[in-house]
Design a protein around this nucleic acid. Structure first.
Lengths: 146, 146
DNA sequence: GCAATTTAGTTTCAGATGAAACGAAAGCCA
DNA sequence: TGGCTTTCGTTTCATCTGAAACTAAATTGC
């Protein structure tokens, strides 16, 4: 159990994400889905809900709800796309951009704290190993029959 | 975003745990909390609910509900501890032990598949790096004020 | 041109979650 | 002994979650 890697990774990640989630909640009054939506809108500019879902790896229900809250709190604007009226065009408002400008350095600080114990060479290793696992996890790595 | 490590780790872990969860669901009709309870009972023998909670890192509400389902499905037995009547003594039934004997090799196969792309030296590296991050995540690594 | 299908996004519903309140039993201590 | 506190485990409640159903708009095929 303690040496079963998927289990260890899962416990580790839950710890990390919970700590980060609490920190966003405290500082910005943002839930994790909200934070993710703001992060991609800030980085990639106006997007449809589907576009946000692809960039954030969240399903569209979650995106829909996060966007609804962000629109209600005035950090994201939503208008109907004139080209395709099923779509909405989502973008940060001025207030949203102001929050975004704080979010990015905050995220970097959190990352730096997490990695503080690793030497530069170890960070490169970690990056490589995670990339390999990502590639592995992209295709179904558990046989359907199992 | 794509290079923000906590985010990458979180997406990676969600992928992996979902794949594993689906596989347990398919093969054993077990949810993740149920699987964890069975794993520790199989490995450490009879335990109280608090004991299970400690070993699995789950909170006691989750343990309580997982145990209730396992008792209902006949894989775990529960009796009142005669020494301390607040406690229950949880153990695998014969049927539970039979399932457990399948679970362990299955978990090893899943792990092997996940790590299939890594050379032995890389596995050692991964183990070390994860251990370091675990140590880091054990103490609060995000400042309270942040 | 228009029925059938696909796509975007929301709503509904049923289950999972954990914080907080809870009852019951045990421990503590005067 | 008899109150006060702590511990065990369950229940309650409010929230989050995603699958499925749904509406509206666009696209496809005939």
């Amino acid at each position: 159990m303690e040496d079963f890697l998927p289990y260890r990774l899962s416990v580790l990640m839950l710890r990390i994400s919970n700590a980060i989630a609490r920190s966003y909640e405290r500082r910005f009054r943002l839930t994790v889905p909200e934070w993710r939506v703001m992060a991609v809108l800030g980085r990639f500019g106006p997007l449809s809900a589907v576009g946000v879902a692809e960039k954030t790896q969240m399903d569209k229900v979650r995106v829909s709800r996060a966007v609804a809250r962000l629109v209600a709190s005035g950090r994201v604007s939503r208008r109907v796309d004139p080209v395709d009226r099923r779509r909405s065009v989502l973008a940060l408002t001025a207030e949203g951009r102001a929050v975004h400008r704080e979010i990015v350095p905050h995220a970097r600080r959190v990352e730096a704290r997490l990695l503080a114990g690793l030497a530069p060479a170890e960070r490169v290793q970690l990056d490589r190993l995670v990339a390999k696992l990502e590639a592995r996890a992209e295709t179904p790595f558990v046989a359907e029959a199992e």
